[in-house]
Amino acid sequence: MYQNLSSYRIFYTVANTKNISKAAKELYISQPAISKSIQKLEESLGTKLFERSSRGVALTDSGELLYTHVKSAFETLSIGEDRLRRSIELGIGHLTIGVSSTLCKYVLLPYLKEFIKENPHINISISCQSTNQTLKLLEEEKLDVGLIGKPYLLKNIDFYSLREIEDIFVATKDYLHNLSIRGVRHDQILQNATLMLLDKENMTRQYIDDYFQENHISLQDIIEVSNMDLVIEMAKVSLGVGCVIKDFVKEELQNGTLLEIPLGIPIHKREIGFAYNRDIKVSDSLEKFIHFYESFR
């Protein structure tokens, strides 16, 4: 585009009013300034845009062609301004959250239920993957916020702790009874059972592997799955012993569907919380979400 936007604004206004005097009043500039701008635009484009008469001005064929496109451009700008105003008034925004499928189901959704009530015009996208993948995407500035287990090193990540979680091992009464029939003692269950664990890319699995190593627990049979809901369901059909988060099997423990296996040395509790990259510019939507989860109880 060879002309600046003000030249086309003047052309557009003159074409609409069909009168230089009226256009001058509407734009709050002098008539000579409008005439000079039109002249420069015509010289630049190499064609006459208006026919002048005592009654005003009228578009030439070239002017009509240009006006069609200029009109469309200014109408698009007007629509954009209106939508921006509505967006500001309504608090419209977008938030992308990274979270594992398990934490999404048991922790994030209750938060979002209340957050959406307060901020119904913020569009939310959820990207489900492991904590390690969420951290990577946060560092790459591809997510606004993540719900994760607290990592050993936070680097450039701000972490807000929500609560502690406790990893436990569970199985059905029937499965434990069958191990007992085979002569497996209570303190040897993990070494002799089929263990259902999350895959090695998952931070929970890495945490549990550290526990096994520190306590010199050698394993025989392992089934690896991608999410904890599968571990819970497989444990409930007596496929083996599942490593799960205690809060997420409260109902099964209360009704006896699953039994917690006592450990000689308990697994240390760990923290879960929201995290975001402190190096990014915090959007209005993220600022509202941060304020919400810091005050939510």
Rank of each mutant, 00 (worst) to 15 (best):
E42C: 00
E42G: 01
E42Q: 06
E43N: 10
L45M: 11
G46I: 03
T47M: 08
K48D: 11
K48L: 10
K48S: 12
K48Q: 14
L49W: 06
F50I: 00
E51S: 05
E51L: 05
E51D: 12
S53V: 02
S54T: 12
R55V: 05
R55L: 09
G56F: 06
G56H: 05
G56N: 07
V57P: 03
V57I: 09
A58K: 15
L59S: 00
L59W: 08
T60K: 01
T60M: 01
T60Y: 04
D61H: 09
D61G: 01
S62T: 04
G63R: 03
G63Y: 08
E64K: 15
E64G: 00
E64D: 07
E64Y: 06
L65M: 11
L65C: 04
Y67I: 06
Y67W: 14
Y67H: 12
Y67R: 06
V70E: 02
K71A: 04
S72L: 11
A73D: 13
T76N: 13
T76Q: 14
T76S: 14
L77H: 09
S78N: 12
S78W: 10
G80D: 14
E81L: 10
R83W: 13
L84N: 13
L84P: 01
R86Y: 12
R86D: 13
S87K: 12
E89K: 13
G91N: 05
G93D: 07
I97Q: 07
G98W: 09
G98P: 05
G98N: 09
V99C: 10
S100E: 05
